[in-house]
Design a protein around this nucleic acid. Structure first.
Length: 491
RNA sequence: GGUUCCUUGGCCGAGUGGUUAGGUAGCGGUCUGCAAAACCGCCUACGGCGGUUCGAUUCCGCCAGGAACCUCCA
C-alpha cells in the first residue's frame, strides 16, 4: 500500500495521517444510542459511518477494538426542572413498563435495524447501567484531583477550575469567558457554582426509578460520564479514535474531554471524528424536532412522508453516496435514485461472474484499484469510491458486450476489487427479492418462457408480447438477450 | 446575540486555482421483431457583488439566503 489513511481530526480541524498508538492495533469508541424509542434515519448515519471506518481498519489489517455504548441511564430530560427524572424512567412511566424493559425493547430494535443495514456489531457494547461502579470511581478521582465539588448529594464538575489548568472548549472552539458573556440564557441553577458546570452524579428524587447507592447518596451518573469511564476501561487512558454525531461535539464531547483529562491528567483521545446530520427539508432530522422517520418506517414505506418503501441497502447506499462530514438531505427522489444506482451496481456484479476472458486486455484494472484505495484513504471518501466503482460497472458492461477485453488475471482482480470494496468495506450486499427463491416459481416462469420462446420462433409476436406483458404485471421482468431470454423478479 | 459551517447542473451529491466527478432524471443514437436491459453521445453547473491572479466554482472581502451548536439529540 503506497498511500496511508488520512482522517479529518475535529480537534485539529485538519486531515491527519492515521497512525495507531500501538502498531497493528486500533481502538475506537463511538457514541451509541440512548435506547428510549425506535431508531430513526439519523441513527443510521453514525452507524454506517463508523461501520465504514471499522471495516476499513480491518481491511488495512489492524486488529480493531470497536466499542460502542448503549446509554440506558441518566440523560436528564430537563435539568431546570426539579424532578430530575431521566428519559428512560419517564418513558417507562408512560408505557407502564419497567425501565429495563424499555431499554431492552428499543435495544433489540436497534440491533435488528443495525443488522438489516449490514453493519458489523462492535466488539464491545457496554451499557451505562452496567458501569455504575466505574463511573463512581471516576467521579472520586476527579474529586481527588480537585475538579469537582459535592453539593447536597450531587457532584458537579468545576469547569472554571478546569479551565484554569487546562483549557475548556478545545474541541468546539469555544472559550469560557466568551461563553459566559454571550450565552443565550442563564437559568438559575442554584447548586452549581457556575452555569457551565455539569453533573457527574445527580441526586435522585424518591420517584426516580433508576437510582443507585453511592457515597453521595442515592442517585445516578451524569450523562457525559459513561463515555469517559467506559472508553478508559476498555481502550485505555489514551486511545486512537472517538466518534459520534456532530451534535454531540458540544457539550457532550467537550465535557468528556474535561472529565477524562481532569481524572487522568492528560488528554485521552487522539482522533475525534464527527459525522454530519441528515436533514429533511434542510432541517436536521431529530427525535426532539418530531421530523424523523424511523428505520422500520423507512424499510416498510409506512410513513406519510414516504412515497414507497426503501430497502436497508438502498438506505445504506444513499448514506454512503455522501461524504460523512457533509449534511445529507432526505427526499423520496434521492432515495429512489440511490436505489436505482445500487441496482445497476448489483446487476454488474452478477454479470461479472459470467464475463469472457481474452488473451489480452484493453482495460486497466490497476488504475481502478489505485483510485479506490486513494478514495478511502482520503478521509473515507465513500462517494468518490462509489464513483470509481461505477467506472468499473461501465467496464464490466462493455466487456460483457464484447467492446472491451480482459485477461483471466485481470478478471480475478476485478472480482476481488468489487468483493473488497463493495462488500467488505462499504458493507453492501445483494438483496434477494422475496419470491425469487422459490424453486416452484422458477420452474413455472421457465416453463412460461419456454412457451413464449416457441411463439417467438413462429414469429407469433402477439402471444410472445402477451406473455411478457402479463409476466410484467406480476412483477417478472423478461429480458431477451442475444444468447437467450433471462428474467428477474422485481419487488 | 455568540461560535462554526454551508450555498454546485431537474434532483441527490464529489472535487479542484487552468483538465470529465459519480448517481438519477431528460433527450438523441446503437442493439432488439418490438420492448426492457446494456452501451455511446448530449444537457458542460458552481448564490450575488467586488478583489488577488496570466487565469477562480476553487483564495480574500462584503452582501443575501440557509444550517448546526450554545438545551436532550446521531
Amino acid at each position: 500500500m503506497e498511500q496511508s489513511l488520512t482522517i479529518y481530526n475535529s480537534l485539529s480541524r485538519v486531515k491527519e495521517v492515521f497512525e495507531p498508538l500501538h502498531a497493528g492495533k486500533a481502538g475506537m469508541y463511538v457514541c451509541g444510542p440512548t435506547v428510549y424509542s425506535n431508531a430513526h434515519l439519523g441513527h443510521a448515519r453514525p452507524a454506517i459511518t463508523f461501520d465504514l471506518l471499522y471495516r476499513y481498519l480491518l481491511h488495512l489489517g489492524y486488529k480493531v477494538r470497536y466499542v460502542r455504548n448503549i446509554t440506558d441511564v441518566g440523560h436528564l430530560e430537563d435539568e431546570v426542572e426539579e424532578t430530575g427524572e431521566d428519559k428512560i424512567s419517564k418513558k417507562a412511566r408512560l408505557e407502564q413498563l419497567e425501565p429495563m424493559e424499555v431499554v431492552q425493547k428499543y435495544m433489540n430494535t436497534f440491533h435488528r435495524n443495525m443488522e438489516e443495514l449490514n453493519t458489523l456489531p462492535p466488539t464491545i457494547e457496554p451499557r451505562a447501567s452496567g458501569h455504575i461502579i466505574e463511573q463512581q470511581v471516576m467521579i472520586r478521582r476527579i474529586l481527588e484531583e480537585g475538579y469537582a465539588y459535592e453539593v447536597n448529594g450531587s457532584v458537579y464538575f468545576d469547569v472554571h477550575k478546569y479551565n484554569n489548568h487546562y483549557r475548556y472548549g478545545i474541541l468546539s472552539g469555544r472559550n469560557l469567558e466568551e461563553m459566559q458573556a454571550n450565552t443565550r440564557r442563564l437559568e438559575g441553577q442554584q447548586e452549581k457554582r457556575n452555569p457551565f458546570d455539569f453533573a457527574l452524579w445527580k441526586k435522585a428524587t424518591p420517584e426516580h426509578i433508576m437510582q443507585w447507592p453511592s457515597e453521595w447518596g442515592m442517585g445516578f451518573p451524569g450523562w457525559h460520564l459513561e463515555c469517559s469511564a467506559m472508553s478508559t476501561k476498555y481502550l485505555g487512558e489514551v486511545f486512537d479514535i472517538h466518534g459520534g454525531g456532530m451534535d454531540l461535539q458540544f457539550p457532550h464531547h467537550e465535557c468528556e474531554i474535561a472529565q477524562s483529562t481532569a481524572a487522568l491528567g492528560h488528554p485521552s483521545v487522539r482522533f475525534w471524528m464527527h459525522n454530519n446530520m441528515i436533514t429533511i427539508n434542510g432541517q436536521k432530522m431529530a427525535r426532539s424536532l418530531g421530523n424523523f422517520i424511523t428505520l422500520d418506517e423507512l424499510f416498510s414505506g409506512n410513513h406519510p412522508l414516504l412515497t414507497g418503501a426503501y430497502s436497508p441497502m438502498t438506505v445504506k447506499f444513499f448514506i454512503l453516496q455522501a461524504h460523512y462530514r457533509s449534511t445529507l438531505d432526505f427526499s423520496n427522489e434521492a432515495l429512489v435514485s440511490a436505489g436505482k444506482g445500487l441496482e445497476r451496481l448489483m446487476k454488474a456484479i452478477a454479470l461479472l461472474e459470467k464475463l469472457p476472458v481474452s488473451p489480452s486486455a484493453s482495460v486497466d484494472i490497476a488504475a481502478l484499484e489505485k483510485n479506490c484505495c486513494a478514495a478511502m484513504n482520503d478521509d473515507l471518501n465513500s462517494p468518490i469510491l462509489i464513483a470509481h466503482l461505477f467506472e468499473g460497472v461501465r467496464l464490466i458492461n462493455l466487456i460483457g458486450e464484447g467492446k472491451e477485453t480482459i485477461t483471466e488475471e485481470g478478471l480475478d482482480r476485478l472480482k476481488n476489487l468489487f468483493r473488497v470494496y463493495l462488500f467488505d468495506i462499504l458493507g453492501l450486499k445483494p438483496e434477494e427479492s422475496s419470491a425469487a427463491g422459490s424453486e416452484t416459481v422458477r420452474q413455472l416462469v421457465d416453463l412460461t418462457l419456454e412457451v413464449r420462446s416457441r411463439a417467438k420462433n413462429n414469429k407469433d409476436w402477439t402471444t410472445s408480447d402477451f406473455i411478457r406483458d402479463e409476466l410484467g404485471k406480476i412483477g417478472i421482468v423478461v429480458k431477451d438477450r442475444k444468447d437467450g431470454t433471462e428474467w428477474e423478479m422485481k419487488n
